[in-house]
Design a protein around this nucleic acid. Structure first.
Lengths: 162, 162
DNA sequence: CATATATATGTCAAAAAGTGCCATTTGGTG
DNA sequence: CACCAAATGGCACTTTTTGACATATATATG
């Protein structure tokens, strides 16, 4: 499937994940999914998410349709090439299906909670076809670092036509 | 059999092994299999696993159906080529059948336990048609090393369209 | 061959983790 | 300010995991 085909899909009026939300996770790992995001999910008529580790210290959440695209990509990766295996172990291996309960919450599995070091306040960031879950302090520190050298970031992005 | 044929099988709603779980192995080598994985096994209507050594310092576990695929592949390997023989000795030769008990536990045979250096906390990683069992410290060290240069990993993966 | 030692298995119970439901709080909107 | 929807907190209940202990089986040793 070409990239442009995917892109078309998003331009045809489909709802996408966007925006920043700060929600709290409790001691047992329950976290409310922002209602706007539940709206987005409802267009796939699904009440579950696939949650997995990002390469960054945060989690990624997908609707199952989009997760399957990831799986398809992963299945074409090598079983011996190092980068490929690392990706499969880390990203594919840690994926878990999470049911959204009647009050719009999920239980974030313990190992994922630990990985992203989710404490209390979580930042939920919509990124078109998926969203990320960060511990808010970690996110703040990360962005502070990322924006420390804004000029070279501008240069890189400008090269991409932005 | 082509890769795409295998892939089709997974898209037809079959449950697959996925997710990271941290369980403890006791002094006698007993280890709980995550209940989600037992669900996956139940679709094959089986209560035993084939466990063997990975090329990495961890174990691999298969449902018997999928193990047979491995055996078929192995039987097509050369009897004289070095890599083939090593693979057969190491992976096929060390395979053991483990019964899941009424509480969902297996006894990990001593030789395999030693190989993977399983101490207390084990990480169990679902990888579609099999799962891996790691000592958690070894896994962390492995991933830390693997992710040490995240930028080049990102670059490599980006080249694959990820 | 009898005995000691280690290894394996079965069962029980405590502890930890996950789930469902209801009540309260929060925050936005008219 | 009153209303509504969204988010959170609390509690009871279920399932899963773990630890402990007793019994059984195997292996080694004198």
């Amino acid at each position: 499937m070409s990239k442009s085909a995917i892109w078309c899909q998003w331009t045809l009026g489909a709802k996408v994940f966007k925006g920043h939300y700060v929600n709290s996770i409790n001691e047992k790992g329950r976290l409310s999914i922002p209602s706007k995001f539940r709206d987005v999910l409802s267009q796939w008529d699904t009440d579950h998410l696939i949650i997995t580790k990002s390469l960054d210290k945060c989690l990624m959440a997908f609707a199952s349709e989009d997760w399957e695209k990831m799986e398809r990509k992963a299945s074409s990766l090598s079983t011996v090439r190092k980068a490929d295996i690392i990706f499969k172990r880390h990203v594919m291996g840690s994926a878990e299906e999470c049911q959204i309960d009647s009050q719009g919450r999920i239980l974030v599995p313990a190992s994922l909670r630990d990985y992203a070091d989710l404490k209390k306040k979580c930042l939920i960031v919509g990124i078109v076809d998926r969203f990320e879950i960060w511990d808010i302090e970690i996110y703040d520190a990360y962005m502070k670092e990322a924006l420390k050298d804004p000029e070279s970031l501008r240069t890189e992005l400008a090269e991409l036509g932005l």
